[in-house]
Amino acid sequence: MYVAEPNRTIEAANGVRYTYRRCGPSGATPLVLLSHFRGTLDSWDTALVDRLAVEHDVIAFDSAGVGLSTGRVCRTVRDLAADTLAFMEALAVRQADLLGHSMGGFVAQELALVRPNSVRRLILAATAPRGAPEIQGYSDDVLAHVDFDRPGIQDYLYTFFNHTETSQRLGLEFIGRYIEREHGRDTPVSAAARADQYEAVVEWGVPDHRALQRLAAIEHPVFVAGGDADFVVPPSTSHLLAGALPNAKMKVYPDSGHGFLFQHHHQFTEDVLAFLR
């Protein structure tokens, strides 16, 4: 189970010692998880990972300078893609399926463009294409709930879940799973690391129609997914993303926000497993 999976480390050719967790059967194509802004190993829903790990070799990791990994934090998405490749190469993972959540979805897209042979299939969750409108940084109300050292329960609920009774209740259930791990927890992302990550988010969001046209080069099968009430990444950008990709399918999950994959973890994991099969 992911909640009890030990933290492992591996040193890559770039000199970074990455911390990661890995669970599930070996031998299948690995499924690499790419985290959201200020996400760490602890940010992934244990219920989601455990279900995916029934059929897949699931790998979560801290990128350079984040959480328990060493090195300098990447300040562009291109550098984050190179960082991900360095980690995969250190583990001798030549090709993987990628599940990118929010900023992790930016990285997954970039990786598919710069090293297409390293990717088999893409799952892009609550994310947006480079250069899309309305994504150059987060709104002031979102930043007010995420840009400090230790967000509280209400900050998680505000940012990741719809502001309805049902969504908030399911958000509390997620937080219960989030705090279940008692030993070997990851280190929170520092203010300096958040600032560097946010530079990458803002740079990705500079409006640029030519950047949008790059999506035509991603020929991999892609599953684009999002919540219908996302306050962090506008749901319209998911439609834009899916429409610009040559081989994409899309699903919108009801009454859910940026953390739709945690709220609807049962249905989302079944959809992902069907897509990967």
Rank of each mutant, 00 (worst) to 15 (best):
M1P: 13
M1Y: 05
V3A: 03
E5Y: 00
P6F: 10
I10G: 00
A13Y: 03
N14R: 02
R17S: 02
Y18A: 04
Y18N: 00
Y18I: 04
T19N: 02
R21G: 11
R22D: 00
G24E: 02
G27S: 04
P30F: 05
P30S: 03
L31A: 02
H36R: 08
F37E: 00
F37S: 05
W44T: 06
D45L: 05
V49Q: 05
D50K: 03
L52G: 05
L52R: 11
A60P: 03
C74T: 13
T76L: 13
V77C: 06
L80D: 12
A86F: 04
A86R: 11
M88N: 08
V93L: 08
A96D: 12
H101R: 01
S102L: 07
S102Y: 14
M103L: 15
V107H: 04
V107F: 01
V114Y: 00
P116S: 09
N117I: 07
R121L: 03
I123V: 07
A125F: 05
A126K: 10
A126R: 03
T127K: 00
P129Q: 12
P129M: 05
P129K: 05
A132L: 02
G137F: 15
D140N: 08
V142L: 14
H145Y: 08
G152V: 12
I153L: 15
Q154P: 06
Y156R: 11
H163A: 14
E165N: 02
L170S: 05
L170C: 09
I175A: 00
Y178C: 01
Y178F: 15
G184Q: 15
T187S: 07
T187C: 11
V189G: 08
A191I: 12
A193S: 10
Y198N: 15
A200F: 10
W204D: 04
P207S: 08
L215V: 03
E219Q: 10
E219W: 03
F223G: 07
V224E: 13
V224A: 15
G226D: 13
A229S: 12
D230M: 14
F231P: 09
V232C: 14
V232F: 12
P234T: 07
P235E: 11
P235H: 03
P235F: 06
T237P: 09
L240S: 12
L241A: 14
N247T: 09
K249H: 07
P254D: 10
H258F: 08
H264G: 07
H264K: 12
H266L: 02
E270H: 08
L273N: 08
